[in-house]
């Protein structure tokens, strides 16, 4: 196993836009794989951690119990855990359901929605399905998060500059134009 620091990434209740933004660092991705190895991540499709990771990048907030388990697993395996994007930081678009009772959300999605065909009126209830949480939680309200990269999605430069700073033990100081909430 190489001695390069390892990076893990995951997408919880997100849209994979933040992962697209990671890829948007363009040819710098060649530099990145010189600097690091990827561990558990959709980028290399590793499903399980193979060792201790220096940095974990988390996209998306927690909307079900599986999200919480994955997030806790990331916290256990990563020295530095980074929330990437609005959903991880504030719940984002999925958190718009936080003002609506869960029962109403489920009924709208599986019983009463205009395009729903569900004559028996059964809500999805298979044991293989993760239970939906009462509301969507930002990652830092579930585990300790060390850094936050803002944006929807964060600019590739914000992700790149944060990674380079963290890998070189420098403080993360993003220029004004790179800190954006949209």
């Amino acid at each position: 196993m190489s001695s390069k620091p390892r990076i893990a990434t995951c997408s919880l209740a997100g849209c994979f836009g933040c992962h697209m933004s990671i890829l948007d660092i363009d040819e710098r991705i060649l530099q990145l794989i010189e600097l690091v190895d990827f561990d558990k991540s959709p980028i290399d499709d590793l499903k399980h951690f193979t060792g201790r990771c220096a940095i974990g990048l988390v996209e998306g907030g927690c909307c079900n119990e599986e999200n919480v388990h994955v997030l806790q697993e990331f916290r256990r395996h990563c020295d530095i855990l980074v929330s990437v994007g609005e959903c991880a930081i504030c719940g984002g678009i999925p958190a718009m359901r936080n003002n609506i009772p869960l029962k109403e959300c489920m009924d709208e999605a599986y019983r009463n929605g205009p395009t729903v065909y569900n004559p028996s009126g059964v809500l999805p209830n298979d044991t293989a399905l993760p239970l939906v949480l009462d509301r969507v939680y930002p990652c830092h309200e579930v585990v300790k998060i060390d850094y936050h990269i803002q944006g929807c999605p964060p600019p590739a430069d914000a992700i790149w500059q944060t990674l380079v700073a963290l890998l070189n033990n420098r403080p993360v100081e993003l220029p004004y134009e790179v800190l954006k909430y949209d």
């Binding site: 929330s83 504030c90 003002n99 309200e141 936050h148 990269i149 803002q150 800190l179 954006k180 909430y181």
Partner: peptide, 18 residues
Amino acid sequence: LAYRFGITAPRYPYLFPN
């Protein structure tokens, strides 16, 4: 103002008011 102060995430829990 949040940009000017370099706020990356609030330190308080979100209230999600109605």
